[in-house]
Design a binder for these strands. Structure first.
Lengths: 249, 249
DNA sequence: TGCCTAAAAATTGTATACGATTTCTAATTG
DNA sequence: CAATTAGAAATCGTATACAATTTTTAGGCA
């Protein structure tokens, strides 16, 4: 199984028809979905940085779509928390506040351990293999120096766990929180170069392999607390960068 | 303090600029917000029933707006889970499945008790008075036989508690869950005429008054479990009703 | 009568045009 | 020279028009 195959499923199309790019609700129709997913992936891989302006005209020209559909896509991303829209000013990649950063990881520390427990009890052999491949893909991306890809895959691992638990409502919430975590990490991560812990993922995998719900819950809890404490909470400036540089250059 | 004054704040405008009608994210601009809130209130008060079609033209005519803005409003409601949009078919009031009903209340049972504990520790005297007024308003609506209003106020009480905890992220999640709970209750509530328990709310208020976090957490937990067990999980038919009958008649 | 088919009507998806607000620029002035 | 201010440019909010899809309805046939 290749890295691409693993990355293919996850944040985006999961959840069936009518579900959003964040695993939330109500995806935009037709072409807007494509733009939505494309932008989301770019944001999650940190190719688009928090604070960047997303002009309707510019996005429309890049993706060859009219402003109508671009607006739908931007609004959808706004609903998922990745984009902030200011009236008469436009859309920007969200810049989570320090407080919001705390709250997001506290919420994850509350919700994800419970879901990990459920996943451990329900997981099948095939799913364990898939998780293993996920971790493998994380390593590959990390060794290749593709930090953005590696981080995106790390998020997908959490989503894969939540999918195994087969809880759609909590799963949708977790997807949102993970998306926002990506923005938070982009802004506040302490060591931009350091390997971001796939050790915990491996430990969780082993707990799930033995269907040890209690252990899975505890590992997930401490894993998220670790992530939380890996943040450095000081204000960061946002250096301007244009959209075209990312999608054209 | 009047009932109207209490009902005025809550699901809708809370959260500040840029926040959605569900307490989620990114409200639609200008006029769309009005339509959004109006429809939401109608749904939450069970004046609009699950399954009902929300035609863009029809909604636009009723609110005197173009389809453009109506679409934005409907999409926003879709993102909050109150409305389901099917491609090339239109928007409908969501009909939560039985499984989704279970999951929503299980999620609430996980999240709300924690938030209730935080609220109990942070609550001020003034906030306690406001909560008291909320409960009073619930009674008034109930005695007046206004079931929809009463139920809507019951949801607002939970939101008020979450606001006291001052957790924006968990608060937004709770708002969504409560909105969806309203749909679930409309579909699956066992006793349509029975008084829907404001006793628990009073007990929670007392625990909060003494800043007893442990008690608040436990009361909230059992309260939500009670709500969950008050559901009857069998398929319900959906009787067609038109929009105009609700907003015009 | 029941069912299949095709045309018509209704509804949504998308593009474009215009008005309102904001932002940028440059000339003016103390 | 810095601050201010009017004008221009850019950008968003909304309305309307047309295309694509679905739903309904009318007709024909076994």
């Amino acid at each position: 199984m290749t890295s691409a195959a693993v990355a293919g499923s996850g944040l985006g199309e999961a959840g069936g028809a009518g579900r959003g790019p964040d695993g939330g609700f109500s995806l935009p129709p037709g072409r807007a979905l494509t733009i939505c997913l494309e932008l989301q992936q770019a944001i999650l891989e940190h190719r688009l940085q928090p604070g960047m302006k997303l002009s309707e005209d510019e996005v429309g020209e890049i993706f060859g779509a009219s402003r109508t559909v671009v607006r739908a896509a931007l609004h959808a991303l706004a609903h998922s928390g990745l984009v902030t829209i200011e009236r008469n000013r436009g859309a920007f990649i969200s810049r989570p506040t320090i407080r919001e950063a705390h709250e997001v990881f506290e919420a994850r520390a509350l919700i994800e351990p419970r879901v990990a427990r459920m996943a451990a009890l329900a997981v099948t052999e095939a799913q364990l293999e898939t998780l293993k491949a996920h971790i493998e893909a994380e390593h590959v991306a990390l060794d290749a120096g593709e930090m953005g890809k590696s981080l995106s895959l790390s998020g997908l691992f959490h989503i894969a766990v939540s999918d195994i638990a087969d809880q759609q409502v909590l799963g949708a919430i977790i997807r949102q929180l993970i998306s926002r975590s990506s923005l938070i990490i982009a802004l506040y991560w302490k060591r931009p170069d350091t390997a971001c812990e796939s050790h915990s993922h491996h430990a969780l995998l082993e707990a799930m392999a033995t269907h040890d719900g209690q252990a899975a819950e505890e590992i997930m809890k401490s894993h998220i607390v670790d992530l939380h404490s890996g943040l450095e909470l000081k204000e960061r400036p946002h250096h301007g960068q244009t959209l075209a540089e990312v999608f054209r250059g």
